[in-house]
Design a protein around this nucleic acid. Sequence first.
DNA 1: TCCTTCATGGTACACATGTATCATATCAGC
DNA 2: GCTGATATGATACATGTGTACCATGAAGGA
Lengths: 200, 200
Amino acid sequence: MPKTVDHTERRAGIADALVRVAARDGLHAVTLRAVAAEAGVSLRLVQYYFETKAQLLHGTLLLLEERSRTRWAARLAALPRPVPARAYVEAFLAEALPTDERSRAFHLVWTSYAVLAMTDPELAGQPFVAGPARLERELTGVLRHARASGELAADRDPATEAARLLAVNHGLGTSVLVGQRGPDDAMEVLRYHVGRLFDG
Amino acid sequence: MPKTVDHTERRAGIADALVRVAARDGLHAVTLRAVAAEAGVSLRLVQYYFETKAQLLHGTLLLLEERSRTRWAARLAALPRPVPARAYVEAFLAEALPTDERSRAFHLVWTSYAVLAMTDPELAGQPFVAGPARLERELTGVLRHARASGELAADRDPATEAARLLAVNHGLGTSVLVGQRGPDDAMEVLRYHVGRLFDG
DNA sequence: TCCTTCATGGTACACATGTATCATATCAGC
DNA sequence: GCTGATATGATACATGTGTACCATGAAGGA
């Protein structure tokens, strides 16, 4: 075998270019040629590493989800054990809000794709619904445990509280993305919410 | 002047066709020809009543917002005076969740357009950010008044609570649109939230 | 050394889309 | 009844897009 190129790395470079284009001009502006130009490669190369456009998008989303999972795991590892529910929740919220540029790009691409999945049953199955659903289950478990240990008040419903947390988080994220609110203001509201949750 | 046709009505018919196409196939599938076919008119007619595609989208969004405002006013008119804050909030939440098919189409189009506005500064100005912002101000006012009258606890911050309400509402709306949750479950969470807000 | 396979460049093709243009029927007003 | 503006039909055009095809350099194994 000749030339020997790291496909994973090449694919990551192209996927990053896609994310940059999408974050700058929107997902509708993501064309094979635009991604190729942004990545500094030829159109043919994008075709070579991702057979089709659907696979390009799919692969990019998978990469984003994997990185998100990694960051989340790193945050969790930095917490004391056993993990206090409040620290867990706050770590989650700090991760799931578009604060810096990278995070903004991530959430923008994700949200755009979610909107596509709303009408395309082909896309609906994949992790773009399952990811948040999984997070919600995990959060529910943490809150349930916290309630059992007395960290959370007994009259709180873990499942509903988890749904509420994800909902308020997503809603604030959207308001930041559209420029209605700054990340700091959004974080303020989230802190208020968490404070209410644990301190009543 | 000949023929005399009601332009407003014609435009409304075409705009409705656009909403149907967008709700069924997504905003990316909204093409002049698709809208024309859905409306049962020729491509030329769509061009005639909306000079350009941007104006078609813009006009449709304006129509949707006007109708939304009308429905909201009707709900408000049905409430007893002076309006109890809790009733006001519950009316708002009942309106702002994609329950039936019409509401789902409305929210889907709105969300899709909001995603476009995230990267297109041309679109960012229009009511698609101002609408929710205005609602948030109104809600803040109602909650402030409620706090003054004792209907809302004194340790609640009206502005933050309003932001939180809109955020959780939007987040739940999105989860319904992507099929993660049914409208009933979402309404359940909202009721829980409102209950917490007023009853502690 | 040669040859097969990988990596990459260039380009053509079919198709959809927004917009512009030409044509025509219909009817109000003089 | 004539006329001119209105409403609508049909179609052409330039452009962008995803995909397919052909060619070629590069390098490791026989």
